[in-house]
Amino acid sequence: MNALTVSNMSVSYDKQLALENVSFSVPEGSMTGIIGPNGAGKSTLIKSILQLLPTVSGTVEVFKKPLRSQRKIIGYVPQRSEVDWDFPTNALDVVLMGRYNHIGMFKRASKKEVTWAKHCLQRVGMQDYASRQISQLSGGQQQRVFLARAMAQDAKIYFMDEPFAGVDASTEKAIIQLMKEWKNEGKTVLVVHHDLQTVNDYFDHVLLLNKTPIAYGETNRVFTLANLEEAYGGKIAFLQQGPKAAKGST
């Protein structure tokens, strides 16, 4: 069964097409890396799928149903830089935000929800920071709080936008560990990723994107030099030497 089906999606920014005619289906339980050069529309793709950006055309189905009706099973880890970490709140509180749908309007979080949120913090190694102000966390710790929030959602399909950007080695390990657990639990994961060297290790599926999909499929078939050259336009030699230099958001 396909966890996600995107058909003919186009997105435009101020008359310029940011994404053109994107179609692909992601099988359930797969780990997909979304790869492409800067400006290829990787983050735009995730946000458009999640209907956080207006699309020109196209449809999105999650487990064969329109996205809107599937909110409870969709988890999201946005780029860390997209929120203001000076916001007056603590780590546990951020994680509890992931339980919104389970808590419901007009109600406070029950003891059960708080326990679950604490458990999620523990799984990313942040149990000692539950009441720490989020502005006092390091970049890696903030990323883990976001991971714990996504985990708290207890979703079936996860979207992560550059989770490895600017994090320390131990956080990177924690993220990989979590992704593996998700995979073992049969969850589907899509990750915007820019480090070409680690693609083979992390993902079983790859979507190569440059405004439009260059290739999609299992990593060993799609992640080839020929495809990469097409996506990156011949700059691939440089990128393979120093993929870390190609950091930045799209």
Binding site: L52, Y76, Y100
Partner: peptide, 22 residues
């Protein structure tokens, strides 16, 4: 008081809040 959670979430992370149905 009624919308305390919603106000807090949509202020901190509007995109996530939108996604989760706030």
């Amino acid at each position: 008081t009624l919308f305390y959670k919603e106000i807090k979430m949509s202020t901190f992370d509007p995109q996530f809040a939108t996604l989760i149905g706030v």
